[in-house]
Amino acid sequence: MAERSRTEAPTTDGAAIRLDAVDFDYDDMAMHFDLIIEPSTITAIIGPSGAGKSTLLNLIAGFETAKSGRIVIAGADVTHAAPSERPVSMVFQDNNLFAHLDVTANVGLGRKPNLRLDETDRVAVAEAIAKVGLSGKEHRKPEALSGGERQRVAIARALVRNRPVLLLDEAFASLGPALRHAMLDLVGDLQEETGMTVVMVTHHPGDALRLQSLLVFLDNGKVVASGPAADLLSTKAPTLLRKYLGAEDSAL
């Protein structure tokens, strides 16, 4: 397990993520992942429901444990590490915040899990809240925030945690189009600033184009195609992916 210092400069370098022949059984479905994600990149994971998108993120974050194979982040084998020991922050679609704690406390938990914050922690928390545009709402409870604002708090917490990998599990799926684009732009800006590696699961292939990211297409628990989003989403796309995109278009 690599030692990570919590007092390092706010700019972290991204970490590479490698899944070596990772096997995982989801109910009756056998999943198999072989994947390399380069450091400081943005990768969008798309695919039909039940393809294993969230499972892939859960394996990287440590909420699921691989049956066999290795997961390597920043050169360290984390296959069996606990979620809090991995250099990873994850933002879920909802339930990112503790409903009875205010914005500052929710972000502060990213610094100290017992909430005993010192002065540097407080400064870092205030800075992160300002960065996601929530200054002035420090003492609101989650119920007094909009859906977008709640996700901003979760991102602020990821910032103060200062981990080189940020995972977004359909984090913006419940937001309207304009708000979703604003959040994507925020993630893009923060990624540029910190250089962290971002992996996001999305239902909107357009998200990948907006952030000029890499694209990984999953189907039936396997990586079917991967490459720059601009290439994969063009007419050169493989058949399965075209079918998925076509089905998506006709559903719109």
Binding site: A61, G62, F63, A82, P83, S84, E85, V88, S89, M90, F92, N95, N96, F98, L109, G110, P113, N114, R161
Partner: peptide, 11 residues
């Protein structure tokens, strides 16, 4: 709601 969050944040 809290199990995954707590696991990740080490609470």
């Amino acid at each position: 709601r809290h199990n995954r969050l707590c696991a990740q944040l080490g609470i």
